[in-house]
């Protein structure tokens, strides 16, 4: 495969176009702006649609409109903007509309700053808006995965009629790495439920309102079944040196990159440490983590927030294994040495 050196944010735009995206509605925010800028260039030149909205609220509703017509549609933002989109995410979930949202995480709360955090984990992985809903959440940790996940996201969104969030961070977005591109361009198919402004779709209705209790309950139950199906079919993760691990690190995104370096240092020093890196955060690889809880003596979750993923790990292991929390905030990303020394301390008890 031929590879080009490219920013993670640019890799997203290319993967999305190759994955069949036809519409991008966005609003600028650091550190995600290159995605909107790249889309403004490439979506426009290729005869697709790019439009800068007046706000993230409007952007997500433009997505709602275009998704209603069966289009493969996306946006990209960062925490403050994604927070504004939560109303829209809830409506998308209720109306079962497919869409793709990229969150290039920055530090919070409030305006925070523009350096990486992973503190949108709960907002994105737990639904985030009104009602009992979920989004599928993919967590790329490299430029290559930025392209690959964006490429696949539209197929997943269409298959499940769900929003797929690509939850990345400022460093993976800003970093340049060699990236190879898929060779086939994908396209969305006509959808039986969408509104096309033609005779055969005239009877179709896109809506999230069900004005009776049993009907609304049925919709909710159907959604939960869909999420269970996604958990069976989509859950994905990577493991490094877990076969004989006595200590398991768990991390995603930029933190998993640091962790993989830390693990190789620790292994060189003879410590049996492994790494599990979720590639999907919803659905979460709970079963595999529970299995490993029976093997290792200790787990530690390294993340740039106050222990949000650690809560999911604790739920998965159900007290079967001690779970340590390594947390950083404000855009501070640990060095591999710093992380390794935290592990060494806990390893040696």
């Amino acid at each position: 495969m031929r590879k080009v050196l490219i920013k993670g944010n640019d890799a997203i735009v290319r993967g999305a176009l190759l994955g069949g995206a036809t519409h991008f509605f966005g609003y600028p925010i650091t550190p995600a702006s290159e995605i909107a800028q790249g889309a403004a260039n490439l979506f426009t030149r290729s005869g697709r649609t790019f439009l800068q909205a007046e706000s993230e609220t409007s952007a997500i509703n433009m997505i709602y409109g275009a998704a209603s017509t069966g289009a493969r549609v996306m946006t990209a933002s960062s925490g403050p903007g994604v927070a504004l989109m939560l109303e829209g995410l809830s409506y998308l979930a209720g109306a079962e509309l497919p869409s793709v949202i990229v969150d290039v995480q920055r530090a919070g709360p409030g305006l925070g700053n523009i350096w990486p955090e992973q503190s949108d984990y709960n907002m994105c992985c737990k639904g985030g808006g009104h009602g009992s809903f979920h989004n599928i959440v993919l967590a790329p940790s490299s430029g290559q995965e930025m392209t690959d996940f964006a490429y696949r996201a539209f197929d997943i969104a269409d298959a499940y009629r769900m929003t797929v969030i690509i939850l990345t961070d400022a460093y993976v977005g800003q970093m340049m790495e060699p990236v190879g591109f898929p060779s086939a361009v994908r396209h969305g198919a006509r959808k039986s439920w969408a509104v096309y402004g033609d005779e055969s779709s005239r009877q179709n209705l896109i809506s999230s309102i069900v004005m009776n209790q049993t009907g609304m309950a049925e919709l909710n139950i159907m959604l939960q079944e869909k999420y269970a199906r996604a958990a069976r079919d989509l859950t994905d993760w990577d493991e490094i040196e877990t076969e004989d691990a006595e200590f398991l690190l768990i991390a995603f995104g930029i933190t998993s990159r640091v962790a993989s370096t830390a693990v190789s240092h620790l292994r060189e020093n003879g410590l049996k440490v492994g790494l599990l890196r979720p590639k999907t955060l919803f659905p979460f690889p709970s079963e595999r983590i529970a299995e490993l809880a029976g093997q290792v003596n200790l787990m530690a979750v390294a993340e740039l927030n106050n222990g949000m993923m650690a809560q999911d790990v604790e739920l998965a292991v159900r007290g079967g294994c001690d779970v340590r929390k390594y947390n950083w905030y404000g855009g501070m990303v640990p060095s591999a040495d710093e992380l390794a020394s935290r592990v060494r301390e806990d390893f040696n008890g």
């Binding site: 433009m62 709602y64 275009a66 409506y91 109306a95 402004g197 896109i206």
Partner: peptide, 21 residues
């Protein structure tokens, strides 16, 4: 064809529709 929108956002929804159809 019918689309039910969230409170106040129909003009943005319509923008998405017309940019596609």
């Amino acid at each position: 064809g019918n689309i039910q929108c969230s409170h106040g956002r129909a003009p943005a929804v319509g923008t998405g529709v017309i940019r596609s159809l």
